[in-house]
Design a protein around this nucleic acid. Structure first.
Lengths: 189, 189
DNA sequence: GTCTATACGACGATAGAC
DNA sequence: GTCTATCGTCGTATAGAC
């Protein structure tokens, strides 16, 4: 979704910047912290991102959307839904370093309304990917939609727990249960 | 857990201050915002909380712990575990206004290490309450511990979703499934 | 393209009147 | 107990040398 072309150098830059925002939130990600994490001085950051902090956050969100969409690409290929669900779980686990990494969505959710929209885009994109697999697995549209957003919620909640207590157990279990959730008809409702 | 006695006036004050921190995070909760939300000028806030913003945040966390413990008190009474689990779900739903209110734990989780400790205390206290009901329902200690923390994660994740997209469906479903989760032996593991 | 130096505003905090 | 006025500091942003 990014208009500006992203060079290899920018990739590493955005990764380090994104880690700071994910960890401390948008308002907690001061230019001093962003500078230290990226190894670039503040003025250099303004050279890369003339729009300042707003542009930095926008670029991080765009980059996150793109990288996550790539990690979820197996949702849209053809093949066994169960195997694709397994691939999605693996991709999510890798993306969040098995629960050790902070989640940008959560950080964006603790911010002003404008910034939250970026989080909403990430959530809906993610949920749509899971929903697509659930549909192919035979769930009804309503079942697939609910199952997908609830699966996203389960993983996000697990990331809240790992961020607060350091316990990655909920994350591991949420991922382990993902394939079954996406490919079996829910009991009730 | 609060040492300082809390008057009625302080209750309303802490509620309005807590809402700002929950919504915008610790670093996003500027004294200007806290002042506007509470109706007290900055200097008046310093009269109530001589320790400044740090003391405000500490007071909010202590107050949240106390109020939430009260909402979860039905976990420790005697009686039918299923009925107590229903009461817990109802208490959680009321506490978070059916998913419309922001969660302080999430806001604290996007902060520095010291502040995260407060979030960890809230999480463990909450999880312990659910765990106690699960134990009384006949789950093994390991099952009860895992079931409880996973239930907390499910609700926290639902609150992330409602905060980002406004969809309170995951929250409602997480609450609806809570009694069954706490009182039935998990299939696997 | 990266740096040092600096301007400027917002934020946390305090002094003192009422 | 609440207010207005004010003080440093930090954060955002810019200018200009290299």
């Amino acid at each position: 979704m990014s208009v500006r072309p992203v060079s290899i150098s920018d990739r590493n830059l955005l990764a380090s910047l994104g880690a700071v925002v994910s960890r401390f939130g948008v308002e907690g990600a001061s230019l001093a912290r962003l500078s230290q994490a990226s190894g670039l001085k503040k003025a250099s950051l303004y050279h890369r991102f003339p729009g300042g902090k707003d542009e930095i956050v926008d670029a991080i969100v765009d980059d996150t959307e793109a990288r996550f969409a790539k990690a979820m690409s197996s949702a849209y290929v053809e093949g066994d839904p169960a195997a694709r669900a397994e691939a999605l779980a693996a991709g999510i686990g890798e993306y969040y370093a098995q629960g050790a990494d902070s989640c940008l969505i959560i950080a964006l959710s603790v911010s002003g309304d404008e910034i939250r929209e970026g989080a909403a885009r990430c959530v809906t994109g993610w949920s749509s990917a899971l929903e697509n697999v659930a549909l192919d697995a035979g769930l009804t549209p309503d079942q697939a939609r609910i199952t997908a957003i609830d699966a996203v919620a389960a993983i996000e909640g697990a990331l809240v727990i790992s961020a607060t207590t350091g316990d990655t157990g909920p994350f591991e279990r949420a991922l382990a249960s993902l394939p079954r959730r996406l490919t079996t008809v829910p009991e009730s409702a």
